[in-house]
Write a protein that binds this DNA or RNA. Structure first.
Lengths: 169, 169
DNA sequence: GAGCGCATGTAAGCTGTTACATGATTCT
DNA sequence: AGAATCATGTAACAGCTTACATGCGCTC
């Protein structure tokens, strides 16, 4: 369901686009919020078309199909935003490794935490390059702020835990 | 893979347990880190047994089977902790709704943000009740700290965004 | 004409959710 | 006796990943 909403959102915000365009948009602007590759996007678009949420506006070279969001699609998207109670389903490798950390010797735990710290750092440097220069609207700004804040919190947490573990050596 | 590691971790940290026990443990101590219900856990335990990572220690009343982690299982768990580069796969309804927020009228966006704020608040109050009194070790402490910090960051973010949106009315 | 990026797809397999099904034990 | 909780499972489906497959159009 959420994948649908993400695609509808992109189509409403940025206008008609092909599956390929949407996959690129996902990579560039949405990947810190929701992830999906083209192998998931293409079949989903076909289903959304047959459900009347989007329609094929035109077909170009190489079978390129441009999809537009329909009125029905817009209605569904807005209803979902208004009414859908967000699920807090967390499945994070990082949090799991953090959870299991006390099973390791202090020295090894430090190595693991350092790797986790690096992964937060990488993520932060990716997010700091957003939004890409061509985006004119402030679409996605709120989510970006959240991503940045959470990542910085993660970094601070890693530093704090590292300090504690190092003091045990 | 991560589900396996979570189960191995529980078995190593808390000792032998049945599928039922593990499902309860998941709910009580791990659910802010990784989620799984009994319908996923039971079949996974069978596979882990046939892969030699765990073994049936004894069988009690009502077909209750107590599993123990094997040496091989411990090895695999520790190797995973040491070597596994954590994937940062985010699929968050909340972040997605935040991303799409600018598609709504300001007043509606405020409603959505207030709901998001409440969900962070609920989560915080759940986490603040952890760890359950019976847990003696500091197992899971690092992950809990991370969860608390990230949730507080989420709350602060929601308040900041709400202030901004309200000033636009 | 060789190679690269564009563009679209399928298929197999793994992971996770929801609904269904069953029966034993304990408590009131 | 009836209800709640313990305890284990199966089956169908939905969601996601990885690998494979194909062919166009542009540039060098």
């Amino acid at each position: 369901m959420s994948l649908r909403m993400a695609l509808l959102g992109l189509l409403e915000a940025k206008g008609p686009a092909s599956g390929y365009d949407l996959a690129k948009s996902f990579e560039r602007s949405l990947n810190h919020v929701w992830q999906a590759g083209h192998t998931q996007i293409y079949p989903e678009l076909v289903k959304m078309d047959s459900d009347g949420l989007i329609a094929v506006q035109s077909e170009g070279a190489r079978g390129r199909k441009i999809y537009v969001i329909t009125e029905d699609g817009k209605g569904r998207l807005h209803a979902w935003l208004r009414d859908h109670e967000p699920a807090i389903t967390i499945r994070s490798d990082i949090a799991l490794q953090a959870f299991l950390l006390p099973l390791l010797e202090t020295a090894q735990a430090i190595d693991v935490l350092e790797r986790i710290r690096r992964s937060f750092e990488e993520r932060l440097s990716v997010l700091e390059c957003f939004p890409d220069p061509e985006s004119k609207s402030d679409f996605g700004r709120f989510a970006l702020k959240l991503g940045l804040a959470q990542t910085r919190t993660g970094l601070a947490w890693a530093d704090e835990c590292l300090a504690e573990l190092r003091s045990r050596l």
